[in-house]
Amino acid sequence: MNERVRRWIEAVSLLDRRFIFVAIAVAVVAPLLVPIGLPLRTSREAQALYDRVESLPERAVVVLGFDYDPSSMPELAPMTRAILDHLFRKNLRVIALTNYAQTGPIAERQLVEIAARFGRRPGVDFVNLGYKAGNETVILAVANDFRSAYPVDHRGIPTDSLPVMAGVHTWKDASLLIDIAHGATTDQYVRIAGARFGLPVGAGCTAVSIPRYYSYLQSGQLVGLLGGLQGAAEYERFIRKPGFASAGMDAQSMAHLAILILVAAGNAAFFLSRRR
């Protein structure tokens, strides 16, 4: 083994982690500044969710779970915005709720901003029921009545007085539930709202959670699934409104490539050093 190879193995083995941090930062930032425009493939599960929303009649009720906190916002907010855009464009009634204590204000801001683009009004076209402590028990309580679980909405307005809630009492009165989640809430909705009350459930999740939800997809317990930023980019493509997720796909591609190159270099150095 010549001296150059030996030095290369040493350099890779002792690579300063700050170099790795810089490499990842460059891989993420450069495509955001100079987009590559890699072609986006759409998945069946994302298409299925879009088609399900598309098939709903005007003024049908869609329950949207904002089940993530600020830590997962960069990954999950883009798909939430794309779905909201679609729901409001189709003039569907949106009932938003969350099982996370911090997320009521996050949901409110996104709802108000996107509803305003389509002239949809709070209380009439959408409502943010906000947070209610209890997790699975809250889902069970809604099975009895939305009003007993949520007597008032996030703004403190009595739920019973809101036109958007007219005729909506339990899960059975909704046409679709979409849970955007980074935790286990989708499982709970599938178990109670889906399995027990027959409400079709769709989901959006972080990329790391995708394998977990394939089980529910294959069994038909989820009608569609958006996974991570890729799922959000696919939905943006369906609604023909490229946004943050579409722009971020180049960055994610380059970040994945950078990690794989680093791992490959590490393994090459590992094998060469063993041979030596």
């Binding site: 890699l38 072609p39 986006l40 493939r41 990329a207 995708i210 996974g227 991570g228 890729q230 796909m249 180049d250 994610q252 591609s253 380059m254 994945h256 490539l257 990690i259 794989l260």
Partner: peptide
């Protein structure tokens, strides 16, 4: 990792 981003298809 590559299959879930556009780069994989490219």
């Amino acid at each position: 990792m590559l299959g879930n981003v556009p780069l994989g298809g490219a």
